[in-house]
Write a protein that binds this DNA or RNA. Sequence first.
DNA 1: AATCGGCTCATTTTT
DNA 2: TGAGCCGATT
Length: 1040
Amino acid sequence: MSIVDKDQTFMDDALVEPPPPPPPMVELDNSLLLENLNEAQIEAVTQPLESTSRVLAGPGSGKTRVLTCRIAHLLRHTHNEKILAVTFTKKAAGEMQERVQELLTSLQTHEEESKPPPAPSPYDDIDPYDDGAYGAELEEALVVYEGGNAEPLSPLEQRVRGAVSWQMRRVTLGTFHSTCARILRMNREYLNSLSSVVKHSPNNDATLDGNFAIADQAEQLRIVKEILKEREINEKDLKGVKLNTILNVISNCKEEFAQGKNPFRPKGNKPLPETLKVAAQLYDAYREKLISTNQMDFDDLIYLTRELLAENDDVRDRMRQRWSHVLVDEFQDTSLSQLDLVKLLTSNSLFVVGDADQSIYSWRGAHVGMMADFNDHFPDAKTVYLMENYRSTSNIVKAAQKVISSGKTDSIEAEMRQDMKPKREAGPKPRIIACDDDKGEADLVIKKIKQGVEAGEYGKNHEVAIVYRTNAQSRALEESCVQLNVPYVIFGSATSFYKRQEVKDCLCFLRWLANGKDRGSMLRCLEKNAKGIGMGAIAEFESYCNAVLTHYGNNLRGTPQPTPLDLLLSIADRSRIHESSPPADSVLGKRARTHLLAFSTKMNSIYDLALKESVAKVLTHVIDSLDLLALIDKRSKSTSEFEERQENVRELQQASERYTDGRPCLGSANSPTEGSEQEDSELTPLATFLEDIALVTELADASKKDSDEHRFVVCLMTIHTSKGMEFDTVFIVGNEDGTFPTSQALEEGPGSVQLEEEKRLCYVAMTRAKTELIMTWRKAVRIFTPTGVRTTKRHRSQFIDVLVASKPKKGSAQMESGGTKKSSNQRRSGTTNIYGQGTNNIYGQAPPKPSKAVVTERAGTTNIYGNRQGTNSYGQSSKSSPSRSRFTTSRNSQSPATPNRSNPLDRENGYASHTSRRSLSSFARQAQQPTPNKSRRATAQRGGSASAVPSARARQPSKSSPNRSPKPKASALGGGGSVDSSWFFPIGSEVIHAKLGRGIVLPPPPATESNDMPVRVKFSSGDHQVFDARGPELSPAVSR
DNA sequence: AATCGGCTCATTTTT
DNA sequence: TGAGCCGATT
Ligand SMILES: Nc1ncnc2c1ncn2[C@@H]1O[C@H](COP(=O)(O)OP(=O)(O)OP(=O)(O)O)[C@@H](O)[C@H]1O
């Protein structure tokens, strides 16, 4: 105990006691800090230092800005107090870090400039980017990243940087998960006495240690499979319960347990659902396996930390002392357990920011009522509302508002909801475009973007995103990008990169080295990457393991048991285990022995290297000594596949290089860099690398260069991923019922939890747009059925209906007859009754009535609705949109005010700076023209390259169906924000008429009873004609 | 032990 | 459609 305490104190001291004294508190001029804030924002930022505050605010209202300023405010008004800021993703943490840094820099610069030249200060030699005060090791990396433009810093700049660096050291930025991992590792000595750990380690051997690994989904699955196998349960016997479902259920159960409930007890007299039955069967075994292999899953990070803090007063006090101020961004997506954590960590300064309408993670355990409930948990909390929307044009704000206020109206959220005040001009109207199918949609979107770029419609730094509901939707878009030579980047987690075999095959060695008990990695090493070893040899190895462990159990009690890694090593090097152990030869057969010995020899050399050398060197040695490239070659079907895989491996090696800090890979050796006392130094470089991978930190891509910064690139991502971002132009694709909202949500029906979340998701998506918002949908969608591929007709989404619908007329309510007849997808009978079931449906009382007449009448062929082209109004507005990173004044345009910090180990904040992921090789090839992005945040790329290679197969033009869109009455006559034909065919754009050829759209005539969305077109012949914007005759003339 | 081919199932969303 | 899994073959 005393040792522990000492250790902890020591670590804390390292942080609390600065080598240089804190900067003198000068007269603080807060006006500069508050200069760019409105009144409500100022009120939020300047809440008392010791207080609990909740900022409730809609999208684009500057929540993130407020949080940033609040951090700066706290830093400037306290001395050594430290700050914990929790963000939703690591990327958000990175941006936050950058922004705070920029802000502090500009404030500090201002202060320094207005001061007389001071005497030399202790900061003069501190370079904020290298921890240089403590070690010189990082210089190499610095050269790499600042190499191009390393200008000598002026004394002023040095002082500023030093001061800022010092202040930033007081800030810990991270996600709940990364913060928890940190807390757990800091308090590793407590892990095995946590009650739930005790409960799930039947052998009571101290199994968890500070090197615990974070189990990814693959590992979770492996464990479940292993349990099933052990119990001789066939997957098929599970009655259709899928393995992934089991994992999800287990995850939910953990939350329930944490909240003091027992999910496995039947509720009332209802029998337990099958999924829960299965989960109940597996739950204990699953946890035991994790713990006995020294692993935790994502959920454990949260729950065990919560337990740690709840059960150990001393730890809790220490952690509370450590962070005097706690801030949480995106609080609406916080779970109840995370709330508990916040409570446990907070002493008396808490600042949370969120928007109930943007809660989109309830499926992951987020508590939807979190924002509303906040004051129940913190009765003294002060609430500040931010009502102004600075991001989007008012047309976009209005449209989004229309969507969010549709549907359920009796929730607390709905009651609390107030309209935002748009601060920007009206801007171009949001547009809705119908497309034939996915190919048509993708081509249309990409062509429009291409045109925007090439015709100069997009100003400099114009950012464009395409967002979609499901990842699978990216494929068609990618194909179009490749075909049309438009550079793109897929945002999202890098998991697909780490799922690739070749990457896994490399990583399993590193993981096994870091955690000798990691069984999954062990099996992969042996099974896939060791020559001549298969299931048989593995079985023999395991009996050897058991023999030795039995021996330890019988004769060597008190001696720490060897891990499977130790045992493997011992085959070639007996000294790895106790000399009295039974010899391997006695257990292993000849054949197995030969191969295991060979492999063990190699592993020994790898292990020894790991005690001396960097992660990158070890990885290289792994690849070389096991001839992994040859293996990959053998497994590849083509040279291009091999090259791609090889490229992935290289990418991984590159990433690993950044985890070089002079310490050895397994550098437990307590002689890191002299005097290096950063709190993280107890985590080995290898462990840091692996943890970053597990927690989905974006890995480094050194190839990102400044020269890329101003190139145009389209950002592709799911709507979930887009949370918190903003773009000048946003395309939301796949807005058809069954895709978005998902069919599952539709089946739950109007007002259901799921459908409401889909609605919020749509709201989030729409509010990402600053100036231009375009929503597309597909009239036909390809689906996979047992009978093969089929295309199914789809209806535009109910959210679009909301946008298009006019004020409902009383009494016109009517169930949709299913006028879609056979053409509609019979499997989804659920969809029909979303129209006008009872009173609470999304349309209020009067669902739009699909007119039968329309259905039959319009039996025309081919056509898509309105793409627009030609010049339209949006050049004007892009300037007025405040650029996100343009907060600071001063001249950071030329100086690397915020260069990519180079080394993830240099993490005073536990955060590795943003970077991009591996590029799709096909993309890399075709992207010679543009590439990554100017935007600091727009960089990541997902692996999954296979999907980027477009198959050149010809596509059937899908037979266009009669348009069965419900035809809202008199919609264009409605008030502000309603849809008129210009949403489909902008005035001035070029269209093609099936018979009359090309024409130009003129201002429309007033709507009439028979044509409520008229478009007037002028043809080359000089004729003017009026059409129905929703009719089949017109289609947009796609740019040439 | 390694490879090949046929079978099944899939698409929510992510730390 | 196509990726991943299982089992039969060498
Ligand atoms: N007081 C202000 N004056 C001018 N622009 C502002 C102000 N506050 C914020 N902005 C701008 O508004 C935009 C949105 O800000 P921010 O990203 O902080 O909003 P948010 O509330 O976090 O949005 P979301 O909830 O969608 O994540 C940014 O471009 C930001 O620069």
